[in-house]
Design a protein around this nucleic acid. Structure first.
Lengths: 251, 251
DNA sequence: CGGGCTAGTGTACAACTGACACTAATCCTG
DNA sequence: CAGGATTAGTGTCAGTTGTACACTAGCCCG
């Protein structure tokens, strides 16, 4: 056993990429570092794993201290262990990502949490450590996840419109989707419950509100869920007014 | 910096799930442990990560010491860090998996390698440490991978028959596939080169030999590859001889 | 009450999927 | 050397799914 002692000199941490969705934009929760190294830079929330703690527990702890939330989607993504990624010594970090409803998030009294802020995923750059790379890896995983499991559940408020759901998919997949095809596909999964309510206080025709059907959701996880829709090829603002007219729908 | 010293007391290792394919069966390379803990048990090949080594480097080193192979498919899968998973102290392990052509594998002179042996994935159980769980996780990842990338390349010998390729897919996916549909699908990808050679020394009609087209393979990786075929529902040995007759193909 | 805005809706064509059975070619055996 | 054993190899049709595409409906606001 002594022959291995030289190896017991490293530390490991967890870092958590916390995704949320708001204002049609995919967001990630970052912390402004108050101390060295990388003081003043934005970083992913994370901490050392305690000696008596499993990895998943550590990730949950970090998430809860920051957001007050438990029982949310949380999954290990990848481990980063480049030799010099941390100036304090050999530290490898296990990256997790979680999906939360921003509307449920409340600022926690802990000192870390007071330095936290949501950032648009597409605009984030120049994070501390190798966190840019970690964020990219987690975003990539989220993109994959969205095809494999009905992800909206985790990120949207309990009641939402189909357009909101479509915007979420578009934000994650970084494409535009065709409205009619998207609706056809989503509704055919029998996953949404029509609440027979509509939006209020919007300056246009109000949209119907839906919620996810948790039971059906779990069925789909088992049966295999797969979401595939090509990017909409619709030309943006029609430059010619003279395209073939579509026959008006009559149903 | 001193405040963190208590965390720098752990070690980490890599474990490598090395898959091969032989005799119609998916295999994994295991080592019989010569020392405690778990002496005499089969285990995944792995070792401590050296202080000056990145994770991927460590995984490559383990693979090469064992098989003599470099430049093979090798990917990180998941990190396992349960508090008591290792009796020597806090050791977390980063699991990798690799795909190799068994025919290229040669027993290396190193002492570890002499204790290595191929095992059918479906029969493996009761491994040392948490290696059963690690193997399951890697097999699961391989199942996913096979839908996403033309995996045969990595596991089959350079020349192979369509039936061998089909058996490989069946072994990984743990299903039966329909012969005609499988062939149609694979050939339509334009990924295989017909070598205009046939098997020799088989006691039946010899099959044509194919090889992968590396260039087309790389195109597919970029363009997005997706393999989906339902399990064949063909009834095994036809119990009734009186099913509807299929019209004989006339082309 | 008209303009601005977003919601909401159907169809036709193309592409893909999946079910399904026999003949061809080789070796082996008696 | 004929017949049996064994695996290779091949096409079509029907049903489903994917995709392109444009207008009317309903609300608020000025």
């Amino acid at each position: 056993m002594n022959e291995f002692n030289e190896y017991f000199k490293s530390a490991f941490t967890v870092d958590n990429v916390i995704f949320g969705f708001d204002e049609g934009d995919l967001k990630v929760l970052l912390i402004k570092r108050g101390e060295e190294p990388y003081q003043g830079k934005w970083a992913l929330p994370g901490y050392f794993v305690y000696p008596n703690e499993d990895l998943d527990m550590a990730a949950k702890r970090v998430l809860e201290q920051l957001t007050g939330l438990r029982n949310v989607f949380l999954e290990q993504v990848k481990t980063f262990g480049a030799v010099n990624r941390h100036p304090f010594g050999r530290v490898i970090t296990v990256a997790y990502f979680s999906l939360i409803k921003i509307s449920y998030y409340t600022i926690q009294p802990s000192s870390i949490a007071r330095k936290a802020q949501w950032h648009s995923v597409s605009k984030v750059k120049d994070l501390a450590f190798d966190h840019d790379e970690i964020l990219r890896a987690c975003f990539h995983r989220l993109k994959w996840l969205v095809r494999t499991r009905p992800v909206g559940f985790e990120l949207l408020p309990p009641k939402f419109t189909l357009t909101e759901l479509q915007h979420l998919y578009e934000a994650i997949l970084e494409t535009k989707l065709d409205k009619r095809n998207f609706r056809k596909k989503i509704l055919s999964m029998d996953l949404l419950v029509d609440l027979d309510e509509t939006q209020e206080g919007v300056a246009h025709r109000p949209a119907r509100l839906y919620q996810f059907d948790r039971k059906r959701y779990e069925e789909l996880l088992l049966d295999g869920f797969s979401f595939e829709l090509k990017e909409s090829r619709r030309k943006e603002p029609p430059q010619s007014k003279r395209g073939k007219r579509e026959i008006a729908s009559s149903n």
